[in-house]
Simulated scan of single mutants.
Amino acid sequence: MKGNSSFIIQETNVKGLDTLTVDCGQDLELPYIHLFNPGEVSSKATGSSKVAGSLNVERSNQLSGNHSSGQHHSGHQIDWVIRGQVTFLVDQKTVQLSAGEMLWSHMGERPRLIAGDSAASILRISMPLFYALELRLCKGFELELLLGTIFRLSVSDQSDIQKLQRQMADLMGDDPALREIAAEEFRLYLRRLSQYGETPPEISRARSTSGRACHHVYRMLSYINENYRDDLTIDKIANHLGLHRNFTMSLFKRVMGMSLLECITGLRIRYAEKLLINTNEDVTSIAFDSGFSSLTRFYEVFGKHFGESPQRYRNRMWMQSR
């Protein structure tokens, strides 16, 4: 087991395959990354041991055509072709991708892998909402994803692909400093990918919800992300948008698949987790700095997400990072 302030990495071997899986935790999750061989597409989804709130790596040789493990209704998904050629089904249309191309989706039906040559490898990245908001992606890009757009992007520079492969190797390495650097580089690279310029290369604009509703929800998300550490209430969110309280709650739930309270609490617990791992602040200070109204509430929520107390979680993460 290898770890740092953001990642816990576990490596096992599967003979004959150069594949990598990075999976996330149980309730509060970081991105999972799955690098796999499309020639091994199976109806059986890849299994992985999960560590709450952390990034977990193991090797595997199987992935279902529409890998359901770790998918989130309100999370981002990136399917990035590293080598070879593959075919996805998007809105009942086939889309062929070559090395360096990717599909980035958020809401609605996910692209489904249906074919790939034996030499192909794909990097699949899932970002739950709480993590994606930390990346500070291009606002126009985020909004289009929320509206249902699926982007087809291309990394034509071979050096970028090589950098990505190097980052994956560093994340699985023994050097804590290199693992931390690789993690930060990877986050920044995802942010750079969202800066698509004036003409976004979209391939689908399926609308499961009205554009007006999505615009309202995007404003809610932006406001929550800026204020969740304060005394944020549903009434304040509704007043900020000029909407009725009940309508605000039901609209967010319908579009995002989670309640406003779940979103606020998830961001707070994610922030608290980072402070526990990366600082020496005492638990009480962390609880209030993260936006919780009481220490009792913080312990209750943290225990629900991680299955242990904040101090025990901190000690375990510190031990794993040595």
Rank of each mutant, 00 (worst) to 15 (best):
L97Y: 08
L97W: 09
L97C: 09
S98N: 14
S98A: 12
S98M: 07
S98R: 11
S98D: 14
A99P: 06
A99R: 13
A99L: 07
A99E: 14
A99N: 11
G100R: 06
G100C: 06
G100V: 07
G100W: 07
E101D: 15
E101Q: 15
E101T: 11
E101I: 11
E101K: 13
E101A: 03
M102L: 12
M102W: 01
M102R: 07
L103K: 05
L103S: 09
L103Y: 10
L103C: 07
W104Y: 12
W104A: 05
W104S: 09
W104K: 01
S105K: 13
H106E: 10
H106G: 04
H106W: 14
H106A: 11
H106N: 13
H106Y: 11
M107Y: 06
M107A: 15
M107I: 02
M107V: 05
M107R: 10
G108P: 06
G108F: 09
G108A: 03
E109A: 12
E109D: 12
E109L: 12
R110N: 09
R110P: 07
R110W: 00
R110V: 02
R110T: 08
P111Y: 05
P111L: 02
P111D: 04
P111E: 04
R112Y: 03
R112C: 10
R112G: 01
R112S: 09
R112D: 05
R112L: 12
R112V: 13
R112W: 04
L113Y: 08
L113I: 05
L113D: 08
L113A: 01
L113Q: 08
I114K: 04
I114A: 00
I114W: 09
I114V: 15
A115Q: 10
A115N: 10
A115Y: 14
A115D: 14
A115I: 02
A115M: 03
G116F: 08
G116H: 02
G116I: 06
G116E: 05
G116T: 03
G116V: 04
D117P: 07
D117T: 10
D117G: 02
S118H: 12
S118T: 12
A119Q: 13
A119V: 04
A120M: 01
A120L: 00
A120K: 00
A120I: 00
A120Y: 03
S121N: 09
S121Q: 15
S121C: 09
S121G: 11
I122T: 03
I122C: 01
I122W: 05
I122E: 02
I122G: 02
L123S: 04
L123Y: 10
R124F: 01
R124C: 04
R124K: 14
I125L: 11
I125M: 08
I125R: 00
I125N: 00
S126A: 12
S126Y: 07
S126C: 11
M127H: 00
M127Y: 01
M127T: 00
M127I: 00
P128M: 06
P128Q: 08
P128C: 06
L129V: 09
L129R: 09
L129F: 12
L129H: 13
F130S: 12
F130P: 01
F130M: 04
F130G: 01
Y131C: 00
Y131S: 02
Y131L: 02
Y131W: 14
Y131R: 02
A132L: 10
A132M: 12
L133C: 10
L133E: 13
L133V: 14
L133P: 00
L133N: 05
L133H: 05
E134K: 13
E134M: 08
E134H: 05
E134C: 06
E134V: 00
E134A: 08
E134T: 15
